[in-house]
């Protein structure tokens, strides 16, 4: 539903804190867990996803009256995959270190549910400017969340931040490994719940997912 009464700047700011896609919307868990061993990788992944999100939001919003409803999802996926291929090229060319650090997860931006979710919930119903701002805001929100998780994991797990030595005497290297990712993200979301006074009982990551309608979990099965 196009909501013209919402001021433009709010489309930008809502994604950063109030509707943060990762910490409040609980979407895009895989990259949040997988590439946050180091703050720099987390930042790179966040910015790459932001780029794809802005691009796909603009194109999908521009084509929203052209794409037939029946092939909506495949069309969105192709547009998103196109932007992912573009960012793969750019990173491979200009930032080869980041390219190899992110590895498969760069291609997997295609199936990041934040991007498809914004396409389905926002870009296909709103104008180009609003969709672009929404993409910027949601992308920055995602980047901030990744950066937060990545910073905590790197500082506690390796004693460094963006590769700068902070504390050499002790470190909990388990936090840079797989279990640490789950643990730190769980703690951060618990804190967010505490701050926003949200009760987690009936919340799950699927609520904002485009496939929620057909999902047995979203119905509480």
């Amino acid at each position: 539903m196009p909501n013209k009464s919402v001021p433009l700047y709010k489309e930008l700011t809502k994604g950063i804190l109030k509707e943060n896609p990762t910490l409040v919307g609980l979407l895009g868990m895989c990259p949040t867990l997988a590439v946050t061993q180091e703050a720099s990788n987390a930042l790179g992944m966040g910015l790459a996803t932001t780029f794809v999100l802005i691009g796909s939001n603009i194109v999908i919003s521009a084509l929203r009256n052209v794409i037939p409803k029946s092939v909506k999802l495949p069309a969105y996926i192709v547009i998103i995959a196109g932007f992912v291929t573009l960012i793969e090229f750019l990173l491979h060319g200009f930032l080869p270190d980041l390219y190899s650090a992110l590895g498969t997860f760069l291609s997997l931006i295609t199936v990041n549910c934040i991007i498809l979710g914004r396409a389905e919930m926002f870009a296909c119903k709103n104008g180009i400017v609003r969709s672009a701002l929404d993409g910027v805001g949601m992308g920055l929100g995602f980047t901030l969340a990744l950066l937060l998780v990545g910073s905590v994991r790197e500082i506690l797990g390796a004693g460094t931040w963006f590769g700068i030595q902070l504390n050499g005497s002790y470190s909990l290297s388990i936090l840079t490994m797989a279990p640490g990712g789950f643990l730190i993200l769980g703690c951060i979301i618990a804190l967010v719940n505490r701050i926003t006074k949200r009760e987690g009982k009936d919340l799950n990551g699927c609520a904002g997912c485009p496939a929620a309608k057909s999902c047995p979990n979203a119905k509480g099965a």
């Binding site: 640490g180 769980g186 979301i189 618990a190 987690g200």
Partner: peptide, 18 residues
């Protein structure tokens, strides 16, 4: 209340992952 739902699930996942 603050750890019900996803946070407790993630911490449990962390232990299984361990």
């Amino acid at each position: 209340k603050m750890v019900q739902g996803i946070p407790s699930t993630l911490v449990a996942a962390s232990i299984v992952s361990l």
